[in-house]
Design a binder for these strands. Sequence first.
DNA 1: TATTGTTATACTCTATAACTATA
DNA 2: TATAGTTATAGAGTATAACAATA
Lengths: 163, 163
Amino acid sequence: MPALRGTAAPSTSPGPERLWETTVGGDISFLLARANAISLATTNEALAMHGLKVRSYSVLGVAASDARPTQRELSEFLRLDPSQIVSIIDELETRGLVRREPDPNDRRVNVVVVTPEGREKFAAARVVAQKSELDMLALLDSTEIAALAEALNALATAVPPEA
Amino acid sequence: MPALRGTAAPSTSPGPERLWETTVGGDISFLLARANAISLATTNEALAMHGLKVRSYSVLGVAASDARPTQRELSEFLRLDPSQIVSIIDELETRGLVRREPDPNDRRVNVVVVTPEGREKFAAARVVAQKSELDMLALLDSTEIAALAEALNALATAVPPEA
DNA sequence: TATTGTTATACTCTATAACTATA
DNA sequence: TATAGTTATAGAGTATAACAATA
C-alpha cells in the first residue's frame, strides 16, 4: 500500500478495514462466501500434494466410507452436474482409486466403490485436509465450533427452494 | 459434529440421507461449501430480476455505502482477480450505476462511486437479497444466527496462509 | 415414457501474463 | 523499480441438450 494515506500500521490485515463497515460486509451470505473461498483455496492447496482437489477428495471420501453411492447420488450430494461427476470418477478410476460397479438390481446404475489403493490415498489426504480445517478453526473455541457446525449443518441439509 | 443422527423422518430431504453419515458429510469445510452453494444459487436467482448477480451486487453495495473503494481494494475484499473487477465495473458503469473517479492524489487509482441510479438500484436489489438471506436463516433461531454470524465473521476476516 | 450415465458443447468463472500510465 | 488498472487468453468450472441402455 502506498505511503499517501496516513493509516496506522495494520500490516497483517486481510484488506481494507473500511470496506468491512459497508452494508454487504455484514451480510451473512457474504461472510459465508468469503469464509468458503478461503477454506476452499487452502484445502485445495493442501490436497494438491496428493493429486486431489476438494471435489475429487469428496467423491473419494464418500466411496471410502463404503456408502456405495450411485453417480446420481453423488451429483445431488455434492451439488455437481451428473456430467461433472462422470469426469471426476473417470480420473479417479484411471488412477485406480475407485471403480464403477454395475448395480445388479438396476443395470443403468453404477455404484462407486473404493479400491484398497483409494482407501490408502484417502487416509493420507484426509490428514492434510483435516489439518487445513483445524488451522482455519483455530480462531474459534470449542463452543463456537460446535455452534458453527450445528448452524451450517442446518443450512447445508436444507432443501433449497428450486430443487 | 453429529446432530444428524436420530432426526425424525425427513421426507423432504435434500438427497440420499445415507451419504450424510460419511466422513466428509460431517466436515465443516463441506458443510460450509454446501451451505454457500445453496445461498449463492438462491441469491443469484433472486437478484436476476434486477439484472445483478452476487458479484455485481456486492460491488454496487460497497460503492453505495460511500466507502469509495479502489479497484484493488474491491479485488482483495471480494477475493476476485483485478481483471474480474474491471469487467464487473465496466458493466455497472455502462448501465450508469457506478462511475470511475480518478484519485487526484494518485492518478493510477480509480475510486468507484455510486450514481443516484445505482443507489436506487441497490436499495431495490437489497430487498430481495435480504429476503433470500432471511429465508435461508429461517431454520435457525436468533441465538443460533448470532453465533453463526460471529463465527463466520472470524473465519472470513482471517488472513489466509497464502496472502 | 422415464431414468442413469455418457458425450458434446457452450457458457461462465478464474488465473496468468503482458502492457500502459503513473508513482 | 514498483503499483493500479487494463487487455488478451487460456484454463477450470458449470450448465444444457442429445443420446444409448435400461427400467
